[in-house]
Design a protein around this nucleic acid. Structure first.
Lengths: 230, 230
DNA sequence: TCAAAAGTGTTCACCGTACACCCATGG
DNA sequence: CCATGGGTGTACGGTGAACACTTTTGA
């Protein structure tokens, strides 16, 4: 064979699905949309669309997310490419899953609703179409691994947050209770938090000190990684 | 929009590239082939081919690897999907990278040669086509992370091997010298090795005890994972 | 006899873990 | 005054890290 004939090769549809994790006072959630087209119209689905010829996967993920939820400026990471033959009943379609972490409160809830997107607690998920449950499973596994090896939170929490909030975030992700004294001392050992002179009085009578991330040190730690034994 | 028209969506070429890591007495290597078609004919390349409509990515990876190297029964894992617009100069092509670990000595070297594939030490790589260097970089990063969190070696070493060999494997992967006393005690702590009553006399005058993996316990540890601090 | 690789233990510092009580406040 | 959530410290055991000498035997 002298020249590989690209024209003889099969072309396929390539879709993208975005798994958006969010966090609020109730816990860890993911964002779903109600499909408004067949097949499976009316069912809940990850935020998906098709790749266009002139864009990269990263660009497509951003575009799809924006078109279906109004969300913008979200950093997504590629997760895995799913290729089961009949995963889409209409036509052979592969799908590249992306995932991202965001703070629910600091994004426009109304905007999200306008697009008939909705946050679902991980404990109360509706049935998802196609292989979206597998995608979600892989995303959760990745998020857990990540939570144990890099700091997480900057993306999921508001700018100012309390220790109990941060702990709750980790508990939601890892799905286990943590000891607060150990949690705090381990977090402090990372030296990525700045304690503010302000308290959040929303939740308790005593109030809880607010913290924010030292962005520079935080990103340093993300690069380095660590082992967060919990 | 009532029905999403699948026919209006763009289709793309989807390629696969296999990154095969091997290990022998000289160290860690990867398998490359000399491309026999344009573009870039005669250059060294990862083992690649196109996805066919009726197969999954995993199946395609197996097929491509077999056709180009004769290798069979290799467990490959999906790594990442690359989608830069001009990564292939002929036509828009995305590529899904797969990687695997194998023991060089226990696969037929002649067979591999017949296909004009060749093992290259990581230290002496030729220039690779397209974005194959980025693929390799990602694969090495994954391999290193893996080496620190799961046992590695079953795939890369012959059935019987010595401690110095195992240590050398880790040193090649991590690209750093390790202390042999610490290395041995950490490996022993995993309890996945069986010490045999045989010595390998090939390398040293004194000879080194041969070991083999306790397959069951090994795979148990692979599932569990661990933190292998080196 | 010597060169080259294999084999073997101990000490120390740090970190992860378990664990219980007081504080501040609004109702 | 009490219920609720927030905040704090210590002791112990285990593990990672540093470190040097003896053994074997073919050349």
């Amino acid at each position: 064979m002298a020249l590989n004939d690209y024209n003889k090769e099969d072309k396929v549809l390539l879709a993208l699905d975005c798994i958006i994790f969010g966090f609020d006072h109730e816990g860890l959630k993911i964002l779903l949309i109600k499909r408004d087209f067949e097949p499976e119209r009316g069912k809940w689905s990850l935020i998906g669309g098709f790749l266009k010829e002139e864009e990269t996967l990263d660009q497509a993920a951003i575009r799809v997310l924006h078109r279906l939820t109004g969300l913008d400026n979200i950093f997504m990471e590629q997760l895995y490419t799913f290729s089961k033959i009949d995963r889409d009943p209409v036509e052979r379609t592969l799908s590249v899953a992306y995932y991202a972490l965001i703070d629910i409160a600091s994004h426009d809830e109304k905007l999200i609703q306008k697009f008939s997107a909705k946050w679902f607690s991980l404990k109360e998920l509706p049935n998802l179409i196609f292989d979206h449950d597998q995608m979600l499973e892989k995303a959760i596994a990745r998020l857990r691994r990540r939570a144990r090896s890099k700091p997480i939170g900057f993306e999921l929490l508001p700018e100012k947050f309390t220790m109990p909030q941060l702990q709750k975030l980790y508990e939601s992700i890892l799905d286990e209770k943590l000891d607060k004294r150990n949690f705090i001392s381990r977090v402090n050992a990372l030296k990525i938090l700045i304690k503010l002179d302000q308290k959040d009085m929303q939740v308790s009578k005593k109030g809880a000190y607010l913290y924010r991330f030292d962005e520079k040190k935080y990103h340093q730690k993300v690069l380095e990684g660590f082992s967060f034994k919990i």
